[in-house]
Design a binder for these strands. Structure first.
Length: 293
DNA sequence: CGCATCCCCTGCCTGC
DNA sequence: TGCAGGCAGGGGATGC
């Protein structure tokens, strides 16, 4: 669910209370997330200072002062919220004090900053791991990840090289975290629409002979970077159960051009197409069959 | 190896 | 109103 812009928004929301703070106490209310929590999870975190809060693809990375990294993934339905011990409350909490924890509040971090950070995840596709910083790049989950789409190193040449031999569709290739890391169903659809490329085209259209980038590759890289940057700027998208760590709602979902808009007119000026939904590799794709070729 | 399919889990929406 | 079925932003395991 949360894709790169949402995870980046969460990172920015958590940084003020986590960065430089010491984890005073951890309550693991459920250990059966995507994978079982590491042994002695709470004990290993207690007393650790958070020196950096980073992101790689859709993973949040809290670097600790003992050389370990707390790796956090939101899965489809994970979210964080922050509560301040004696701080401001939202108006709703005055009227109706909320019970201490929801059934899906799985991990609670009490921090020296005075904040409590709560990880909530109804579907439990999210995960928390502890990995040694020096081994992170070689870790199974990270070693095959493709480039960060907003890095300068991600360009048309890189993308073309990753796709030149692929027989699969553009939609499937862009969803593959080994090709480029951090896109999900929404931003793949949005980027393909902006680049006027059909999600059904073979991924190899991005490369000419010898893996040189085509015009399509250049347009697509530009579209990917633009849509991600705009979405981050807008604070991500708020859909169903995802909310920002600061409780504010992301606004980008109002700017989707095709995602979840089947039956609507294509928003491209002068395009007379109608947005269609189709299923590719088991997931919905939204696109305009007229201007996306 | 690449690729497609299935599955993990809960909640919400639709249609009967 | 109740209930069944379909769907949801991810991604690992499996089988061809």
């Amino acid at each position: 669910m949360p894709e790169l812009p949402e995870v980046e928004t969460v990172r920015r929301g958590l940084a003020p209370v986590m960065l430089g703070a010491t984890i005073e106490r951890v309550e693991a209310r459920r250990a059966d997330l995507r994978w079982p929590l590491p042994a002695n999870f709470a004990e290993r975190l207690a007393g650790r200072r958070i020196e950096r809060l980073g992101r790689r693809a859709k993973y949040l990375l809290a670097e600790l002062d003992d050389g370990e990294v707390l790796v956090m993934h939101l899965g489809m339905s994970g979210s964080f919220r922050i509560s301040h011990a004696g701080g401001a409350r939202t108006p709703g909490e005055f009227l109706m004090p909320r019970s201490k924890h929801d059934a899906h509040d799985h991990i609670v971090f009490e921090l020296s900053s005075g904040a409590t950070v709560i990880f909530n995840d109804p579907r439990r596709f999210g995960a928390m791991l502890l990995v040694r910083a020096s081994e992170l790049e070689r870790h199974k989950l990270f070693q095959a990840l493709g480039p960060e789409p907003l890095d300068a190193a991600f360009d048309a040449r890189t993308l073309a090289r990753a796709c030149w031999a692929k027989k699969t569709s553009l939609k499937a290739a862009l969803s593959d975290q080994r090709v480029v890391a951090g896109l999900g169903n929404i931003y793949v659809c949005e980027a393909l629409h902006r680049a006027r490329l059909s999600p059904r085209r073979r991924a190899s259209v991005l490369a000419a002979r010898a893996g040189a980038p085509t015009g399509a590759a250049k347009a697509l890289v530009k579209a990917i970077k633009a849509v991600l940057a705009e979405a981050i700027e807008a604070g991500g998208s708020t859909l169903r159960d995802y909310v920002r760590a600061d409780g504010e709602l992301g606004e980008f979902q109002h700017r989707f051009r095709v995602y979840d808009r089947a039956g609507e007119n294509c928003p491209r000026p002068r395009c007379k197409g109608r947005i269609r939904r189709l299923v590719q590799t088991g997931r919905s794709t939204f696109y305009c069959p007229v201007c996306q070729r």
